[in-house]
């Protein structure tokens, strides 16, 4: 069983994001970067599947600059077996990324693609679904539980929807995207880090994969949203109810 886990290097979850004064992007100096939290959940789940199905192989894949190798090393330290970086310098939109992922998929022929439902920088929530569409394979998105079938040919996935939990049965190969409640990713251990140094990281380029990765979307500018002004501290429940009725007129 081969599992492909695409991961992205993003500004850390805890970082305060600030827009550059000229609106050309966000301030990255002094900002800590980490693996996208949803992708860390995907790596963790792949490791847990491997623990139950010995012989499985986990390949972590990142599309990005040289620095994304650091993020791949984290995945290797957690327990992935090998890594691939597709070298790009410019920002790519979800469709372009999905095309690169599809090209790597055809080269690697995994049984399953496990990836985060969204990257917390772009927040688009598109790439996994687009990949599944390009490949013509089933998808299960926003997944909070995966129960692999006996032979590994199917997976019963619990999906988090607006209405509640939906369980779907998907046939492999499939694309599964992770939600927060799927698992809690392990911390990397020192032996893990030592082992990761010896694991292979292969370098590829979009041209070597013969992918057209022209983005259809282009970010023209960025701005900080208008801040809400702090309102009034009321002294009692009576005052609160009164003001909601007579001032705000919402009760």
């Amino acid at each position: 069983m081969k599992i492909l886990v695409p991961i992205k290097r993003v500004p850390d979850y805890d970082t305060r994001i600030r827009v550059k004064p000229d609106g050309s992007g966000i301030v990255t100096e002094g900002v800590k970067f980490s693996m996208n939290p949803f992708d860390a959940i995907a790596v963790e789940e792949a490791i847990r599947i491997k623990e139950r199905l010995p012989g499985a192989e986990i390949t972590a894949l990142s599309i990005g600059t040289e620095e994304s190798v650091e993020t791949l090393r984290v995945a290797l330290a957690m327990g992935a077996d090998r890594a691939i970086r597709v070298a790009i310098d410019a920002d790519m939109d979800s469709l372009a990324i999905a095309k690169v992922l599809a090209a790597v998929y055809h080269r690697e022929k995994p049984h399953m693609v496990l990836m985060g439902k969204q990257a917390i920088d772009d927040d688009s929530n598109q790439a996994g679904q687009m990949l599944a569409g390009l490949l013509g394979v089933p998808q299960a998105t926003f997944v909070s539980k995966i129960e692999m079938g006996q032979d590994g040919a199917t997976a019963l996935c619990s999906r988090e929807t607006d209405a509640g939990i939906e369980k779907v049965q998907v046939r492999m190969p499939a694309v599964i995207t992770t939600d927060l409640r799927l698992n809690e990713p392990r911390y990397v251990s020192l032996p893990g880090i030592m082992k990761a140094k010896k694991k292979p990281v292969e370098e590829l380029t979009p041209s070597a994969l013969s992918v057209d990765c022209v983005s259809r979307t282009r970010v023209l500018s960025m701005e900080a949203p208008a801040r809400r002004k702090a309102g009034l501290r009321v002294k009692s429940l009576d005052e609160l109810i009164d003001r909601l009725k007579t001032e705000a007129k919402v009760l």
Partner: peptide, 12 residues
């Protein structure tokens, strides 16, 4: 995007 910290203007 960025958890509501950024409003971006995008062309498609």
């Amino acid at each position: 995007q960025f958890a509501g910290n950024v409003i971006s203007t995008v062309q498609l």
